[in-house]
């Protein structure tokens, strides 16, 4: 079992100029639980996710990781030092829609880089650990390949290995399968399910309703910067009360039926 973090989001607001991107978001994520963020595009799911590791700055409210405020010294106060922010980010893994692997490095180097530069590990030790992480995502035979020589699904699995090699206590997934060909989605979801089974706290922005239904402990529905509902997957996906969720799911089903 991994040591897992809790996340507490309280009254978070985010503006892009006059545009109100996140409106008073409140959400609790317990250690070891999987939360899926769903909703139409532009609803603020990714923005909220990116606020959790402060890649995106929120303007008010607070986000606490294991009870510790991220991004600011005090709620509404001045920003925390960049050194402290880096320390907090070391325990938060993130996987991006576009993988964001470093193209000039092999799969192994991509995973080992953080261990060497951030954790200060010796190269040999880092590479052993990177190799273990790549084995874990089923890419033990692809370690010497550059990203351009890997399929999208393999690239995303390298990206997951890069994050888990750092031994995070919380994993953030920003639409991890949206850039993949449909036949490659499964291999990434399998790795994510295994991670969830280990007890990792996960926050996943996704359009994979199947994953949300089967793996998530709670599903949060967002629309136009508002958190419309947070509930057990069945209550959101099968018996939604809010008309906005009903309409979103109707569109989803229409598009996925033939």
């Amino acid at each position: 079992m991994v040591r897992a973090s809790s996340v507490e989001i309280r009254k978070v607001n985010k503006f892009y100029g006059p545009f109100h991107a996140l409106k008073d978001i409140d959400m609790s994520i317990e250690p070891g639980k999987v939360t899926c963020l769903i909703g139409p595009s532009g609803s603020g799911k990714s923005t909220l996710l990116r606020c959790v590791n402060f890649l995106e700055e929120y303007n008010s409210g607070e986000i606490l990781i294991d009870g510790e405020l991220i991004g600011y010294e005090t709620a509404g106060g001045k920003k925390m030092s960049s050194r402290r922010l880096r320390e907090m980010r070391r325990t938060i893994g993130m996987v991006f829609q576009q993988f964001n692997l470093w193209p000039h490095m092999t799969a192994l180097q991509n995973v080992a880089e953080g261990l060497i530069r951030v954790r200060g590990m010796a190269r040999a030790e880092a590479e052993t650990r990177a190799a273990d992480a790549l084995e874990k995502v089923g890419l033990g035979d692809r370690m010497g390949n550059h990203p351009s020589r890997l399929s999208g699904g393999q690239q995303q699995r390298v990206a997951i290995a890069r994050a888990i090699a750092m031994e995070p206590r919380l994993m953030l997934f920003d639409e991890p399968t949206s850039a993949l060909d449909p036949e490659l989605v499964g291999e990434v979801l399998t790795v994510m399910k295994a991670l969830a089974a280990e007890g990792m706290t996960m926050v996943v922005v996704t359009h994979e309703m199947g994953f949300a239904a089967h793996v998530a402990d709670q599903v949060a529905f967002m629309e136009q910067g508002e958190l419309v509902a947070v509930d057990a997957p069945a209550n959101i996906l099968h018996h939604p009360e809010d008309p906005r969720i009903q309409s979103f799911l109707r569109t989803y089903h229409e598009r996925n039926s033939f």
Binding site: L55, R86, E87, F96
Partner: peptide, 16 residues
Amino acid sequence: LPRGQTEAAKAIGMAP
């Protein structure tokens, strides 16, 4: 360079 390149580095806590 795509912004994601440095975001991936920032996300694991890499220094500038």
